[in-house]
Each structure stands twice: as structure tokens, then as C-alpha cells.
Design a protein around this nucleic acid. Sequence first.
DNA 1: TCGACCATGAAACATTTGTTGCACGATTTA
DNA 2: TAAATCGTGCAACAAATGTTTCATGGTCGA
Lengths: 290, 290
Amino acid sequence: MVEPAKSSPLSELRIALPSLPMRLQEVGRFVAANDYDATTRSMRDLAAVAGADPAAFTRLAKAIGYSGWDELRAALTEARRPSEIAPFSVRAKSRRHGPNADVTLVTDKLEAEGAGLPRIPAQPVVEAARALNDAKRIWIAGYRSCRSVAELLNYELRLFRPEQVQLVGVSGPDDLDLGAFRPGEAVIVIGFMPYTHASVRVAQAAHRAGTMLIAIADSLSAPMAEGADHVLLFEAASSPGFFPSLTGAIAIAQSLAAVTFSLGGKAAKKRLENTEARLAAASIYVPEKG
Amino acid sequence: MVEPAKSSPLSELRIALPSLPMRLQEVGRFVAANDYDATTRSMRDLAAVAGADPAAFTRLAKAIGYSGWDELRAALTEARRPSEIAPFSVRAKSRRHGPNADVTLVTDKLEAEGAGLPRIPAQPVVEAARALNDAKRIWIAGYRSCRSVAELLNYELRLFRPEQVQLVGVSGPDDLDLGAFRPGEAVIVIGFMPYTHASVRVAQAAHRAGTMLIAIADSLSAPMAEGADHVLLFEAASSPGFFPSLTGAIAIAQSLAAVTFSLGGKAAKKRLENTEARLAAASIYVPEKG
DNA sequence: TCGACCATGAAACATTTGTTGCACGATTTA
DNA sequence: TAAATCGTGCAACAAATGTTTCATGGTCGA
């Protein structure tokens, strides 16, 4: 016989369900099926939707051992709270000093990052790509470790929009570029904690100039995300290691470039072909072997 | 005034944030950072935690275009609703765009890349890290899109081995560096199909000089992998999109740096702390907010 | 058949919620 | 400098929330 986990309020509910009065069972099933609304909407709202009496919710909570509906709802809320910390930290800790601790370090790291990628919300990426597609010019800024992300984005976008994409600070001091931001253009800033002053300054300059601002960051409360028109979030701290992970940022950058290219249609495709042809003519690449 | 995308209430909040009074900014930041509690706890509770006046929440909501806190909270709640099921008929009003091609492109891409990462073999990474740990000097080469990977690796390794790590070609033409390779040193070359002539030349020079060669590539038959002491493979073509994926290469680079650091022991840790202290002294980073 | 018991809905209750009016201080404008 | 405006905390307000009580209707056992 499997003993259901009692840690979750929903399983407590399911256990007690069969021995409850009929009306309370209905309400209980409703709560179990709609636990998100149970945590957010009011008791009377739920009662109206469930077609039951408001008092039934109080009675249900008491019937399964809570002092009242408020306490049950609090438990449901906590159960649903998004986990901020990586759940495998315990696991990593337990095996850290094994014989081949380094191998498990790599394995855990890759696993965690692999799990983190699908959690990146896709919708904002698409919206940001639309904004890029409309922009007359695209500036990209990233400092220290984020410079690599900025350069990758710069490289890929320039494959099909060579004249309109530019890294901030390549052709002189950053300050000169900051003054060149114009409405109708777009600025992409990449950064995570700790945030560099330089990246924040770029974001502020963009906002002041009325330029479309896209932030790729690890938190909504990142200083360069304030006032940004689009914020693309990735999990920098999701994996073990001595340094925050950039895999998420890279994945976002590549998705952004891919969608922007797809939005560019035939014109973008044509320009990519031109670029490839030019590279081939300069024999940059090693010819493929048969 | 630019009218930005108002897809999510949080982005509306972020956009309006900079133009708000100071106290409202604080509260707005708090809401953005704790949006889950914002949907579940009461206004007065939030005010107590945020150390602000309850009225500020109402004022914030009105300042960004809502009729009141209740309406803002409802919007936040809907934004957080788990996407799969539609338990409430009320939900029909939320205008979720139907099966959008671009969104599924991004989702598929991220999912595929997420699945690809755990398939990266860990053992070679550890062995390569051991080689790096023994190397007197480390050269890193990557061209075109792989330049971003090379620079990330360069950045992270220099955090704890500043004097011994160098990108190929930063202090002059590549050719000069190629002649500087010595036995006892290590060369890391990153590349995938199509392979650049430059990266192949680096690999050949390393091999000729008797330098330890580490190749990060998409195939064992990559030209720069020939004669390499360590080959670290990633799946470049595993995901859809117009361009091969670099997420795997980035993940390898970061794992490599992490393991190398861990092998470095106390000396590496000490030097990392020194670097961080120097960065802090130069006030490169924005100080963390309470 | 009667009485005890329980489930259930409606209404009254005290509490808590979000809101708004007011006063005070800071900042800006004339 | 004076007046006006704005931002902000406090306290009172009406509305809503969760809870409790009470009356009703049904079921089971004696």
C-alpha cells in the first residue's frame, strides 16, 4: 500500500475526501481541480463558480484539520510557491567529495542547465524580435562575461543585417555611442548580478533617448531592466560552479536572432545568402570533404 | 512618447517605473521582485514586508493605468496562471494568441537544446581541465561565431589565472602568436562546421609546436580535432533555427572553467578573491540593494 | 412514528480589506 | 520670498471577506 505524501495540502485533501459529506466532497474536488484559483480568488467567488455555499469552504478546511479556510489557503499558496533555489543543491552537496567529484560536478551542471532552458518564457522573445525587426538600427551592449553574449548576438544579427547592427563601444569610447541613440532604434543590454555600471548607463541612455530597450537579464529587478520595453529572463544561478551560468543568455540570444531572421522574410534570407557567398569567395572556410 | 508592448502587467510596471515618484518606485520594484506574494498576500501584509505605506500600492496601481490595486493584482494573477488548463470560464477574456509559429519555434529550440546538454560526456571535460591545470600557459582561439565562446572562456579563466591565459590574436596578428606556442602550454580551439581556415591553422601550429591541444568541436572528424589531445564534443545542429547552436559549446566552456578552478585549489581561490576585490575597488559593479 | 442527529443553505457577525480624504513637509514656480 | 504643486504618511471610511449562528429538511435508529 502506498502511503500518500502528507506534506502537500492537496494530498491531505484527497485522503480525507471519501469520508466526507457529499457536498463537502464536491467542494473538495473543486478545490483540488482548481487550486490556483483557490489561492487567488475569494471564497465567495469560488462558491459562485462551484455552485456551492461559501460556508462549505470553511467547513471543508476544518474537516481536514485546518483551523479555517484562511489556513488551508495559506498552505495551498505555499505549496504552489515557485522554487527559487535549485532543488539539487542537497544532492550536489552530498556527493561533492566523492572519488570523482569533478565528474559529478560537470554532470550536475549540465543537467541543471539543460533543465533550465525550457523554463525560459518564449513569448517575450518573440515580442522582442518583432521590435528588433522594426528597428532602424540595433545597438548591443554587454560587459565583462556578458560581452561574449553581446558579441554572439552582434555576429548573428549582422549576418543578415550588416549595416544596422553595432556593438556599443567598438568604434570609440562607449560614451560617444550613448549619445547616438535615437528613437526608432533598438538597444539590447545583457547583464546579470553583479551588474556593471556601464550596462546600467547604457540602459539609462537608451531610455532617455526614447530608444527601444531590450534587456537580457537574470532578474526583473535588475537595474538595466527598469524601463525596458522587453525583458528576457534567464536563470544565471541555476547551476553549480564558481561562476553564474551564461547558457540561458546564449540560448535567448540565439532564439532572438533566429526569430528576428524569420520575421525578416525574403529580404533577410537574401542578405544572409549574400554574406555566405562573400565568405565563401574569401575562402574563409575549409571546403567540406567528400 | 513611445507606446511599448503592454503584453504583461509586469512589463507595464517596468516601463512606467523610471518616471514614477521615488516611493512608488520602491514599491514597484518590490512588486516586480515578489510578484507571487503580490498575488497571494494582502496589501497590508505586503506593505509591512516592504516597509511602505499600504496606500502606496493603490497609488502605484493607479499610476500605471489600473483602476486600483485589485485590478492590478487580478492582472498579475492572470499572468501567472498555469497555462495548460482553463478551469475558469472567465479566462476566455484573456486574449492569448493562438498557436503562434514563432513561439513554438522558440519553445522547440529551447527544449531541444535543454535535452542536448546532459548528453555531453563529462569525463573528457575533466581530463581536459586536468591538462589545463598543468599547463604553464593557456591560449584560446575561436573565430566568427565561436569567438564568443573563446572570449567567455578567456574571461572566466583569467579570473583566477590572469597572467597565464590569452586569446590568440589579441596582441597582434594571429601568426605571431602561432609562433609563440611552446611545449608545456595548452591551446584551446573552438569550432564547428563550416570550419574556418584560421582555427585549423591554430590547431596545426599547436600540434607542430608540441603544445597540448584541446578542441571543442561538433565532430570527431573536425579538422582542428585531428591530433588533438582532448576533444570535447557538443551538438551544434541539434536544434532548429537558421544557425547552429552554441549553447553546448558555452556549457562545455563553463564546465571546463569550473573544473579547472576547482582543481586549482586554494591558490585559484585566492587569486579569484584578489580579482574580485580589485573589481570592487574600481567600483565596476552596482552595489546590491537591500 | 417519533426523536436524535447531521448535512445544508441563508443571514448576521466581527474582522480585514482596499480606498480616500486630510495634513504636513519638500520642491518647484511666479 | 510667497504661492502653488507635489509626494507622502496617517487615519477614518465603506466594502468585502471569512466565520458563526440559526432554522430547515432529510436520514437513520429505536
